[in-house]
Simulated assay, not measured.
Amino acid sequence: MDKYRVAFIGCGNRAKRHAEALRADGRCRVVAVSDLSPEAAESFKAEFAFGEAAVHTDYAAMLAAEKPDIVISCLWTPLHLPMFRACAAAGVRAVHSEKPMAPTWGDCLEMARLAEASGCQLTFCHQRRFAAGNRLVREWLREGRIGKLLRMDLYSPPNLLDCGTHTFDQALSFNEETGVKWVLGAVDGTNPLNWFSVRAESMAVGTLVFANGVRAAVQTGGPDQDMHTGVRLVGSEGFVEVDWDGRIGEARVYDDPAWKPEVAEADEAAQMIGVIDDVVSSLEAGREPELSYRKALRASEIIYACYESVRRHARVELPLAGVTDNPFIQLLDAGHFEPAAEQGA
């Protein structure tokens, strides 16, 4: 068959990680690159020897002219929904986007609705699902190496939306994609951050309970984290710590003290090769991708439920209802996080 026609939207650093992996896949041919900066687009094209690729500064015009089968989008978060809407309308067969899904829960739901209505395969770059160490931990869990999973400690740098999405996705993958029943969260918004044009908290903590009874405590950012990223999984017969990229930390099997786990090295290049293979192979086979938007939506729902818990001062049950905005930003705009000495002044 002819190679899949691939176009890039956004030609920055993350696009380069995808391009490196794409060159290893013989099923694809890059036909276009698009960036607001023509210099960035030309430099990207030259660096990866995409010699026949057309260069565009307007991705809508690129979609109309080049008619790609697959789009790889590396845009900032607020641009994800309009990009996907344009791609779906143009008949693109698969869109792979950088995470997180979108800056509001309503936008996340709209992206999911568009994917269902159009049939366009939509994936998000939770590439760490393909880390060798994370694959190994999933295998241990299936084997019952640490017994029945009871609880998880979840860690990431700040913030919930841009960084926590990796940790929640990692936890969901370890817990057989089981959904969350309820969330109780708290955030520190007194020194807000700005990540890819979305304002966010500098620290968050919370408790989650999954539908199968597994409990999880989460901390993103702030002092005194005993893991910088990743998950500590506690089972009935042991425990294991694994960071985002699959590096195994402490691990124990209680009745087998001599057990020493195989240590998997972190390999981002291999992760990205897994991403591209997942996108293309799923499109070929017509199957649900490992990086499906449905899985990203579950992680996003946890994030927005944490924010809504702060707004309600209450525990929030899932599925998340009655929310379409970003509760953290609404609270920030309302002055909710002003230092105590300044409130009511």
Rank of each mutant, 00 (worst) to 15 (best):
V180K: 00
A186T: 03
S197G: 03
P319L: 09
A186P: 00
E338G: 02
P68Y: 00
L136M: 13
T229Y: 08
I303H: 05
I72R: 06
G179K: 03
R129E: 11
R138T: 04
N159G: 13
L233W: 04
E143P: 11
F239S: 07
W105I: 12
G106F: 05
L193G: 09
E39L: 05
C125Q: 12
A131H: 02
M1N: 10
D162C: 11
M152K: 07
M101V: 14
R23H: 13
P261H: 03
G246M: 12
A334I: 08
Y304P: 03
G238E: 12
L184Q: 15
L208N: 00
G179R: 07
H80S: 09
E110I: 09
G26W: 08
C163D: 09
V253P: 12
G246I: 07
D153V: 00
L283D: 13
A117H: 09
S202E: 08
R113C: 00
G10H: 05
L81A: 08
Q271C: 15
A258H: 04
E52F: 01
I70G: 15
M62C: 06
V30A: 01
A305Y: 03
R142F: 00
T104A: 08
W244C: 11
P38T: 04
E47Y: 02
G144K: 15
A296R: 02
L332H: 12
Y304E: 06
A264G: 01
T167P: 11
N13R: 08
V187K: 00
L154H: 03
R145A: 12
E237H: 07
D69F: 02
W195E: 12
L150K: 10
A90E: 14
D278W: 01
F84D: 02
N212L: 04
Q170N: 05
M83G: 01
L332Y: 06
E20Y: 01
R151Q: 12
S43C: 05
D2Y: 06
R113W: 04
S282M: 11
A131T: 03
A251K: 13
Y59V: 02
G286F: 00
L36Y: 00
Y307S: 02
V323N: 09
